[in-house]
Amino acid sequence: MSRLNLPRPLVLGGILIGASVLLAVFPQLFAPYDPVAMDYNALLKAPSWAHPMGTDNFGRDVLSRVIHAYTIDMQIAFFGTVFSFVFGIIIGAVVGYAGGAADTVFGRIVDAVITFPFLVLVIAIVSVLGPGLVNMYIALAVVGWVFYARIIAAEVKVQKRLDYADAGRAMGYTPLRIIFRHLLPNAITPAIVYVVTDMALAILLGSSLGYLGLGAQPPAAEWGVQIADGKNFMTTGWWISVFPGVAIVLTGLGFSLIGDGLAEVLRTRK
């Protein structure tokens, strides 16, 4: 069957992310313990049959915390990108179509944003707004839309010169109809590929902010927070930080693979 002939990265990434979503939605089905329950008889235990990933300095089961962290970290992957994606493609499509002064102003905004390292800019905004997940999403959207808008604007500029756009104008269609019904569906592919890889970046960034105490707040189970919790016990309890780190790597890898696979599928379909 040629229908099943999907690129291998897409299949592999799909399995990884499918499993992650399952864990994120039903963590209590898979976690053997309550993620915040403390057990003072089992502090800093190494991995064993009772605690496959060991316990932390409060006696909390690391495996259960890693599993429950999927809920927050997959949310970060989604909410950390969806607002950038939506605002970015809307603004990018309009700017790309309008051109002229709007495009010039937009170009300078892009220059200003990409001058700063992404993480520094996000940290600066979160510091002003105060730590927490919602403020982190706001910061990610404020900075992130620029990248989507730039991708879409460039594509729309190409598409709007094609005859089908002129045909729409000659039909008397409104600019909004031409932009969103005709140009955007033809311009959106690179942004879709980008959003998937951006989800991996959002998780890394969310964990980084969690580690720095600017994202998810303790005692919430979040991989970055967990890694930060374990940093004082690296010599005696390596498992506290290492297993959340592995979860980050696997999830990030899953999104990247999907992004690669999608790029391949959407490219060959034309």
């Binding site: 045909a167 269609y173 569906p185």
Partner: peptide
């Protein structure tokens, strides 16, 4: 006026939206 004076374009490959079926193209107009 647009309806009264219509245009047919030179390039048969770029003059139709590749993401729309013929039915959608005609229905829209």
């Amino acid at each position: 006026f647009n309806a009264k004076v219509q245009m047919i374009f030179q390039d048969p490959y770029s003059s139709l939206n590749p993401r729309m079926k013929v039915r959608q193209i005609l229905t829209e107009a």
